[in-house]
Amino acid sequence: MSELVLVTGGTGYIGGWCIAELLHRGYHVRTTVRSADREKSVLDALSGEEDPAGRLDFAVADLTSDAGWDCALKGVDHVLHVASPLGVNSGKDPDTMIRAARDGTLRVLRAATSAGVKRIVMTSAANAASPSSYASEGITDETLWTDPEDPTLIPYRRSKTLAERAAWDFMAEQASGTELTTVLPGAVFGPILTKDNIGSVGIIARMLCGKMPGVPRIGLEVVDVRDLVDVHLRAMQSPAAAGQRFLATGEFMWMREMTQILRDDLGNEGRHVSTRQIPDTVVRLLARFRDPTLREITPALGRRNRHSTEKARTLLGWQPRSPRETVLDCAESLLAHGAVTV
Results as ranks from 00 to 15, higher is better:
residue 1 M to L: 12
residue 5 V to C: 00
residue 9 G to W: 00
residue 14 I to S: 09
residue 27 Y to W: 14
residue 34 R to P: 04
residue 34 R to N: 04
residue 37 D to G: 00
residue 57 D to Q: 05
residue 69 W to L: 10
residue 73 L to P: 00
residue 85 P to F: 08
residue 86 L to A: 12
residue 89 N to L: 01
residue 90 S to Y: 06
residue 95 D to M: 10
residue 102 R to Y: 02
residue 112 A to F: 06
residue 113 T to L: 01
residue 114 S to I: 03
residue 115 A to W: 13
residue 115 A to V: 12
residue 117 V to P: 02
residue 121 V to H: 01
residue 121 V to N: 01
residue 123 T to S: 14
residue 129 A to W: 00
residue 133 S to D: 12
residue 148 P to F: 07
residue 151 P to H: 10
residue 165 R to D: 12
residue 173 E to G: 13
residue 182 T to I: 05
residue 190 G to W: 07
residue 190 G to T: 05
residue 202 G to W: 11
residue 206 R to L: 08
residue 213 P to D: 06
residue 214 G to E: 06
residue 217 R to Y: 02
residue 218 I to Y: 03
residue 218 I to D: 01
residue 220 L to H: 02
residue 226 R to V: 12
residue 227 D to C: 08
residue 229 V to N: 09
residue 231 V to M: 04
residue 232 H to S: 05
residue 241 A to D: 07
residue 247 L to D: 00
residue 247 L to F: 07
residue 249 T to E: 06
residue 249 T to Y: 04
residue 250 G to R: 09
residue 255 M to D: 06
residue 268 N to V: 14
residue 293 T to M: 02
residue 295 R to L: 14
residue 295 R to W: 03
residue 296 E to Y: 02
residue 298 T to I: 14
residue 302 G to Y: 08
residue 308 S to F: 12
residue 310 E to C: 03
residue 310 E to Q: 14
residue 322 S to Y: 11
residue 334 L to W: 11
residue 336 A to M: 05
residue 337 H to R: 13
